[in-house]
């Protein structure tokens, strides 16, 4: 027998083979290593976001002014809804770790209950994310994009509680409707091999005439001034900018244009929160599979709920990533 296996003289030692030096099962360890690689992917995205932000540090959108809505309520509530989403995800992390704990004690009904709550939490989060996307895509006040791709927004100074504050004004509220606007080109009424997307609701001329008619409305550029606020142009400068440089009326955001500022901001928003949302979505699916396995008694028969623990690791990781996305997208 000694001829088949080399005798290394390390038998019985920690790394001598035949035991688990890390005191962790293969599956759990591999989940950890997957998490490390996935963490690096997300850091790559967030670092790329940081790169672009540092590159355009003087004109990057201010997140507080972008994400200000909560469902069913009107008004300006920066951060509240994302804080709610963060809390939902942390809460579902808690129910997950409670499920893992119940699994250690082989309490099937408790594991089932906590897994169910975790799934519900995940669904609420994904739903909120979808709503957040919808609001972002639909837009708020609208803006005019210049020939150079910069964004010009509108607003007026108002005195609230004795303080002069700049209040945003929506494009649709000032634009005057004019006849003779261009109709959208489609394939049947012209060149069949050329198509065109939906035209903006207003032309730059309509917005310009609206700006002329509203003498208190001013243009705000993306440039951040010494006070950390966006620069507001004078009345004469406002009219001049829209007249000479205005090219396109933008409402909402997509991968090409973005009424809140540079399109890069929207691109990163869709990409990073989208990738994270996809992780949450797959996490929910995996949780559902494990949930049914728990109900069917698979782990009861196996004598170990370690599978719940492995899925739990993934689920906590998704929460962990959101903590960072929350900081770098909404807070910093």
């Amino acid at each position: 027998m000694d001829t088949t296996v080399a005798n290394t003289g390390t038998e019985g030692k920690t790394w001598g083979g035949g035991n688990q030096p890390l005191k962790s099962s293969y599956g759990k360890m591999m989940m950890w290593f997957f998490i490390v690689s996935d963490a690096l992917t997300f850091s790559g995205f967030l670092a790329a976001y940081g790169f672009s932000r540092f590159k355009f540090i003087g004109s990057w959108p201010i997140a507080d002014e972008v994400f200000t809505h909560i469902p069913f309520f009107h008004g300006n509530y920066p951060m509240i809804y994302v804080a709610f989403m963060t809390f939902v995800l942390i809460m579902s992390s808690v129910t997950m770790v409670l499920a893992v704990d119940a699994g250690h004690h082989m309490q099937k009904s408790k594991v089932t209950f906590y897994m169910f709550l975790t799934i519900i939490g995940g669904l609420i989060f994904v739903g909120s994310q979808a709503w957040e996307w919808g609001t972002f895509i639909k837009g708020d006040y609208g803006a005019v994009q210049t020939k150079g791709g910069n964004i010009l927004q509108f607003g007026e100074y108002k005195t609230i509680d004795g303080e002069k504050v700049f209040k945003r004004v929506a494009v649709r509220d000032i634009a005057v409707n004019e006849h003779g606007e261009r109709v959208q080109h489609d394939r049947k009424s012209g060149l069949w091999f050329v198509s065109e997307g939906t035209l903006p609701a207003y032309t730059v001329d309509e917005v310009f005439h609206g700006l002329e008619a509203n003498s208190n409305v001013l243009v705000r550029t993306q440039i951040i001034n010494a006070e950390g606020e966006k620069t507001v142009l004078s009345r004469a400068e406002s009219l001049k900018q829209i007249k000479n440089n205005g090219k396109l009326v933008v409402e909402g955001a997509n991968l090409h244009v973005n009424e809140y500022g540079t399109p890069l901001f929207a691109d990163f928003f869709f990409f990073i929160t989208g990738f994270h949302g996809f992780h949450v979505f797959s996490g929910v699916l995996i949780n559902i599979i494990i949930f049914f396995n728990v109900i069917l008694g698979t782990y009861e028969r196996r004598g170990s709920y370690e599978m719940v623990e492995k899925v739990g690791l993934y689920w906590h990781f998704v929460d962990l990533v959101w903590v960072f996305v929350f900081t770098f997208f909404y807070l910093v």
Binding site: S43, G44, A47, S52, F54, K55, I57, G58
Partner: peptide
């Protein structure tokens, strides 16, 4: 990664 990318972003700015 963060050091490299932020350094470069700041330089370009």
């Amino acid at each position: 990664l963060i050091f490299i990318l932020l350094q470069e972003g700041g330089y370009i700015e």
